[in-house]
Protein backbone atom coordinates (compact mmCIF):
# COMPACT_ATOMS: atom_id res chain seq x y z
CA UNK A 1 0.00 0.00 0.00
CA UNK A 2 1.41 3.39 -0.93
CA UNK A 3 0.30 6.20 1.26
CA UNK A 4 1.33 9.80 0.94
CA UNK A 5 3.63 10.68 3.83
CA UNK A 6 1.36 13.48 4.94
CA UNK A 7 -1.74 15.32 3.84
CA UNK A 8 -0.69 18.51 2.05
CA UNK A 9 -2.14 21.77 3.36
CA UNK A 10 -5.43 22.92 1.92
CA UNK A 11 -5.01 24.66 -1.42
CA UNK A 12 -2.22 22.26 -2.44
CA UNK A 13 -4.28 19.13 -2.63
CA UNK A 14 -5.08 17.24 -5.82
CA UNK A 15 -8.67 17.23 -6.95
CA UNK A 16 -10.58 13.98 -6.35
CA UNK A 17 -14.16 14.69 -7.26
CA UNK A 18 -16.23 17.57 -8.50
CA UNK A 19 -19.96 18.20 -8.24
CA UNK A 20 -21.03 20.87 -10.66
CA UNK A 21 -24.47 22.48 -10.78
CA UNK A 22 -26.10 19.38 -9.36
CA UNK A 23 -29.88 19.46 -8.96
CA UNK A 24 -32.01 16.66 -7.58
CA UNK A 25 -35.77 16.86 -7.95
CA UNK A 26 -38.15 14.22 -6.60
CA UNK A 27 -41.55 13.54 -8.11
CA UNK A 28 -41.20 16.44 -10.53
CA UNK A 29 -41.64 19.20 -7.97
CA UNK A 30 -39.83 18.51 -4.67
CA UNK A 31 -36.41 20.09 -4.97
CA UNK A 32 -34.15 18.10 -2.64
CA UNK A 33 -30.95 19.71 -3.80
CA UNK A 34 -30.46 22.85 -5.83
CA UNK A 35 -27.39 23.85 -7.76
CA UNK A 36 -24.79 22.18 -5.58
CA UNK A 37 -21.15 22.82 -6.41
CA UNK A 38 -18.49 21.07 -4.42
CA UNK A 39 -14.88 20.24 -5.14
CA UNK A 40 -13.49 17.43 -3.03
CA UNK A 41 -9.70 17.24 -2.84
CA UNK A 42 -7.57 14.31 -1.79
CA UNK A 43 -7.11 14.44 1.96
CA UNK A 44 -10.07 16.70 2.65
CA UNK A 45 -12.17 16.00 5.69
CA UNK A 46 -15.44 17.67 4.74
CA UNK A 47 -18.46 17.88 7.01
CA UNK A 48 -21.86 18.52 5.52
CA UNK A 49 -23.65 20.40 8.28
CA UNK A 50 -27.26 21.45 8.22
CA UNK A 51 -30.79 21.05 9.54
CA UNK A 52 -32.87 18.09 8.47
CA UNK A 53 -34.27 18.44 4.96
CA UNK A 54 -31.24 20.38 3.74
CA UNK A 55 -30.31 17.63 1.29
CA UNK A 56 -27.13 16.43 2.96
CA UNK A 57 -28.14 12.79 2.74
CA UNK A 58 -29.32 13.36 -0.82
CA UNK A 59 -25.90 14.78 -1.65
CA UNK A 60 -24.28 11.68 -0.19
CA UNK A 61 -26.54 9.34 -2.14
CA UNK A 62 -25.71 11.24 -5.32
CA UNK A 63 -21.98 10.97 -4.69
CA UNK A 64 -22.30 7.28 -3.86
CA UNK A 65 -24.06 6.69 -7.19
CA UNK A 66 -27.22 5.34 -5.57
CA UNK A 67 -29.09 8.17 -7.27
CA UNK A 68 -28.49 10.13 -10.43
CA UNK A 69 -28.65 13.91 -10.45
CA UNK A 70 -31.65 15.42 -12.23
CA UNK A 71 -29.18 17.78 -13.84
CA UNK A 72 -25.53 18.65 -13.42
CA UNK A 73 -22.51 16.38 -13.17
CA UNK A 74 -20.45 14.49 -10.65
CA UNK A 75 -17.00 13.72 -11.98
CA UNK A 76 -14.29 11.60 -10.39
CA UNK A 77 -10.69 12.38 -11.35
CA UNK A 78 -9.61 9.40 -13.42
CA UNK A 79 -13.07 7.83 -13.36
CA UNK A 80 -14.68 5.75 -10.63
CA UNK A 81 -14.15 2.06 -9.96
CA UNK A 82 -15.98 -0.14 -7.44
CA UNK A 83 -13.96 -0.11 -4.28
CA UNK A 84 -13.14 3.59 -4.69
CA UNK A 85 -15.90 4.28 -2.24
CA UNK A 86 -16.44 3.24 1.36
CA UNK A 87 -19.73 3.97 3.06
CA UNK A 88 -20.72 4.13 6.73
CA UNK A 89 -24.40 4.57 7.53
CA UNK A 90 -26.09 5.92 10.63
CA UNK A 91 -26.78 2.33 11.68
CA UNK A 92 -23.90 -0.16 11.74
CA UNK A 93 -25.70 -2.06 8.93
CA UNK A 94 -24.02 -5.38 9.59
CA UNK A 95 -25.32 -8.74 8.51
CA UNK A 96 -26.36 -10.38 11.79
CA UNK A 97 -25.83 -13.90 10.48
CA UNK A 98 -22.21 -13.23 9.58
CA UNK A 99 -19.20 -12.93 11.86
CA UNK A 100 -17.19 -9.72 12.13
CA UNK A 101 -14.61 -10.89 9.60
CA UNK A 102 -17.29 -12.10 7.20
CA UNK A 103 -18.93 -8.69 7.38
CA UNK A 104 -15.67 -6.92 6.61
CA UNK A 105 -15.08 -9.44 3.81
CA UNK A 106 -18.25 -8.30 2.00
CA UNK A 107 -16.76 -5.78 -0.49
CA UNK A 108 -14.21 -8.38 -1.56
CA UNK A 109 -16.67 -11.24 -1.54
CA UNK A 110 -18.85 -9.37 -3.99
CA UNK A 111 -15.82 -9.17 -6.26
CA UNK A 112 -15.42 -12.93 -6.10
CA UNK A 113 -12.49 -13.09 -3.68
CA UNK A 114 -12.38 -15.85 -1.08
CA UNK A 115 -12.02 -15.11 2.61
CA UNK A 116 -8.59 -16.75 2.68
CA UNK A 117 -7.36 -14.55 -0.18
CA UNK A 118 -8.09 -11.32 1.63
CA UNK A 119 -7.45 -12.43 5.21
CA UNK A 120 -4.53 -9.99 5.49
CA UNK A 121 -6.60 -7.03 4.32
CA UNK A 122 -9.42 -7.92 6.71
CA UNK A 123 -7.09 -8.26 9.67
CA UNK A 124 -5.42 -4.99 8.75
CA UNK A 125 -8.79 -3.18 8.69
CA UNK A 126 -9.88 -4.75 11.97
CA UNK A 127 -6.59 -3.76 13.55
CA UNK A 128 -7.15 -0.20 12.36
CA UNK A 129 -10.36 -0.02 14.37
CA UNK A 130 -8.98 -2.02 17.30
CA UNK A 131 -11.14 -5.12 16.84
CA UNK A 132 -8.57 -7.70 15.72
CA UNK A 133 -9.52 -9.95 18.63
CA UNK A 134 -13.19 -10.02 17.63
CA UNK A 135 -12.93 -11.40 14.12
CA UNK A 136 -14.99 -14.50 14.93
CA UNK A 137 -17.67 -12.70 16.98
CA UNK A 138 -21.20 -12.13 15.82
CA UNK A 139 -22.55 -8.56 15.71
CA UNK A 140 -25.01 -9.23 18.52
CA UNK A 141 -22.09 -9.94 20.86
CA UNK A 142 -20.71 -6.43 20.31
CA UNK A 143 -21.66 -3.06 21.80
CA UNK A 144 -23.09 -0.26 19.65
CA UNK A 145 -19.72 1.44 19.38
CA UNK A 146 -17.96 -1.78 18.43
CA UNK A 147 -20.53 -2.51 15.74
CA UNK A 148 -19.86 0.94 14.32
CA UNK A 149 -16.14 0.14 14.30
CA UNK A 150 -16.83 -3.01 12.28
CA UNK A 151 -18.81 -0.89 9.87
CA UNK A 152 -15.86 1.51 9.59
CA UNK A 153 -13.45 -1.40 9.08
CA UNK A 154 -15.65 -2.63 6.24
CA UNK A 155 -15.57 0.81 4.62
CA UNK A 156 -11.76 0.92 4.90
CA UNK A 157 -10.92 -2.57 3.76
CA UNK A 158 -10.83 -1.79 0.05
CA UNK A 159 -8.61 1.25 0.70
CA UNK A 160 -11.17 3.54 -0.92
CA UNK A 161 -10.31 6.94 -2.36
CA UNK A 162 -13.32 8.42 -0.60
CA UNK A 163 -15.24 7.46 2.53
CA UNK A 164 -18.81 8.67 2.95
CA UNK A 165 -20.21 8.78 6.46
CA UNK A 166 -23.88 9.52 7.03
CA UNK A 167 -24.27 10.62 10.66
CA UNK A 168 -22.44 7.50 11.78
CA UNK A 169 -22.22 8.34 15.47
CA UNK A 170 -25.57 10.08 15.94
CA UNK A 171 -27.15 7.10 17.67
CA UNK A 172 -24.28 6.55 20.11
CA UNK A 173 -23.87 7.95 23.61
CA UNK A 174 -21.64 10.98 23.97
CA UNK A 175 -18.68 9.21 25.59
CA UNK A 176 -18.55 6.61 22.84
CA UNK A 177 -19.02 9.31 20.23
CA UNK A 178 -16.04 11.30 21.50
CA UNK A 179 -13.91 8.18 21.57
CA UNK A 180 -14.89 7.28 18.02
CA UNK A 181 -14.28 10.86 16.87
CA UNK A 182 -10.74 10.68 18.27
CA UNK A 183 -10.14 7.31 16.69
CA UNK A 184 -11.52 8.47 13.36
CA UNK A 185 -9.04 11.34 13.27
CA UNK A 186 -6.23 8.95 14.16
CA UNK A 187 -7.31 6.69 11.31
CA UNK A 188 -7.40 9.61 8.93
CA UNK A 189 -3.90 10.58 10.03
CA UNK A 190 -2.62 7.04 9.39
CA UNK A 191 -4.45 6.43 6.12
CA UNK A 192 -4.53 9.96 4.68
CA UNK A 193 -8.03 9.18 3.50
CA UNK A 194 -10.59 11.59 2.15
CA UNK A 195 -13.84 11.78 4.10
CA UNK A 196 -17.24 13.37 3.59
CA UNK A 197 -19.04 13.33 6.89
CA UNK A 198 -22.70 14.22 7.29
CA UNK A 199 -23.69 15.52 10.70
CA UNK A 200 -26.12 17.82 12.42
CA UNK A 201 -23.70 18.53 15.27
CA UNK A 202 -21.69 21.74 15.08
CA UNK A 203 -19.25 20.44 17.69
CA UNK A 204 -18.59 17.20 15.89
CA UNK A 205 -18.09 18.93 12.56
CA UNK A 206 -15.59 21.43 13.99
CA UNK A 207 -13.65 18.75 15.86
CA UNK A 208 -13.32 16.47 12.88
CA UNK A 209 -13.15 18.42 9.68
CA UNK A 210 -11.00 20.96 7.91
CA UNK A 211 -13.89 22.11 5.73
CA UNK A 212 -17.49 22.51 6.88
CA UNK A 213 -20.03 22.88 4.12
CA UNK A 214 -23.08 24.48 5.71
CA UNK A 215 -26.34 23.64 4.00
CA UNK A 216 -29.79 25.24 4.06
CA UNK A 217 -33.18 23.64 3.62
CA UNK A 218 -36.16 23.96 1.26
CA UNK A 219 -34.71 23.74 -1.24
CA UNK A 220 -31.60 21.91 -0.06
CA UNK A 221 -28.53 23.89 -1.07
CA UNK A 222 -25.06 24.95 0.01
CA UNK A 223 -25.29 28.07 2.13
CA UNK A 224 -21.67 28.75 3.03
CA UNK A 225 -18.36 27.06 3.73
CA UNK A 226 -16.39 27.40 6.96
CA UNK A 227 -12.70 26.57 6.97
CA UNK A 228 -11.46 24.98 10.17
CA UNK A 229 -7.81 25.94 10.18
CA UNK A 230 -6.87 24.30 13.48
CA UNK A 231 -3.92 21.96 12.95
CA UNK A 232 -4.10 18.17 13.16
CA UNK A 233 -3.55 15.99 15.12
CA UNK A 234 -6.44 17.18 17.22
CA UNK A 235 -6.70 15.60 20.64
CA UNK A 236 -8.92 15.87 23.69
CA UNK A 237 -7.14 19.15 24.57
CA UNK A 238 -8.45 20.71 21.40
CA UNK A 239 -11.98 20.06 22.60
CA UNK A 240 -11.48 22.36 25.58
CA UNK A 241 -9.37 25.03 23.86
CA UNK A 242 -10.44 28.60 23.17
CA UNK A 243 -9.72 28.03 19.47
CA UNK A 244 -12.26 25.24 19.40
CA UNK A 245 -14.89 27.37 21.13
CA UNK A 246 -14.27 30.20 18.66
CA UNK A 247 -14.50 27.87 15.67
CA UNK A 248 -17.71 26.37 17.03
CA UNK A 249 -19.16 29.84 17.35
CA UNK A 250 -18.19 30.60 13.76
CA UNK A 251 -19.75 27.39 12.48
CA UNK A 252 -22.81 27.92 14.63
CA UNK A 253 -23.26 31.43 13.20
CA UNK A 254 -23.00 30.05 9.70
CA UNK A 255 -25.60 27.42 10.52
CA UNK A 256 -27.97 30.00 11.98
CA UNK A 257 -27.38 32.12 8.91
CA UNK A 258 -28.44 29.15 6.79
CA UNK A 259 -31.55 28.61 8.87
CA UNK A 260 -32.55 32.28 8.79
CA UNK A 261 -32.05 32.32 5.07
CA UNK A 262 -34.71 29.65 4.97
CA UNK A 263 -36.89 31.47 7.52
CA UNK A 264 -36.76 34.71 5.55
CA UNK A 265 -37.72 32.87 2.43
CA UNK A 266 -40.52 30.97 4.11
CA UNK A 267 -42.09 34.07 5.63
CA UNK A 268 -41.73 36.04 2.40
Amino acid sequence: MTLPSSIPPMGQRDKLLEMSNVDKVFGGNVVALKDMNLTVNQGDFISLLGPSGCGKSTALRLISGLMRPTSGHINWEGGQKTGDLGVVFQEPTLMPWATVEQNVWLPFRLRGKSLADVQDEIMWALKMVGLEKFQKSYPRELSGGMKMRVSIARSLVTEPRLILMDEPFAALDEITRHKLNNDLLELRDKLKCTVIFVTHSVFESVFLSDRIVVMAARPGRVSSEVTVDAPYPRTEEFRTSADYAELCRKASDALHGAMNEHGARASA
Binding site: S64, G65, L66, T82, G83, L85, V87, F89, E91, T93, M95, L106, P107, R109, L110, R111
Partner: peptide
Amino acid sequence: DHNLRDLYKIYGATRWQRLRY
Protein backbone atom coordinates in the same frame (compact mmCIF):
# COMPACT_ATOMS: atom_id res chain seq x y z
CA ASP B 1 -32.26 -4.00 5.42
CA HIS B 2 -32.42 -1.03 3.04
CA ASN B 3 -28.96 0.20 3.92
CA LEU B 4 -27.51 -3.24 3.28
CA ARG B 5 -29.26 -3.23 -0.09
CA ASP B 6 -27.66 0.14 -0.84
CA LEU B 7 -24.30 -1.17 0.27
CA TYR B 8 -24.59 -4.16 -2.05
CA LYS B 9 -25.48 -1.80 -4.88
CA ILE B 10 -22.51 0.46 -4.16
CA TYR B 11 -20.19 -2.53 -4.20
CA GLY B 12 -21.63 -3.63 -7.53
CA ALA B 13 -23.32 -6.86 -6.40
CA THR B 14 -25.07 -8.93 -9.04
CA ARG B 15 -28.71 -10.03 -8.56
CA TRP B 16 -27.50 -13.51 -7.81
CA GLN B 17 -25.04 -12.29 -5.15
CA ARG B 18 -27.69 -10.17 -3.57
CA LEU B 19 -30.09 -13.11 -3.46
CA ARG B 20 -27.53 -15.54 -2.10
CA TYR B 21 -25.62 -13.44 0.40
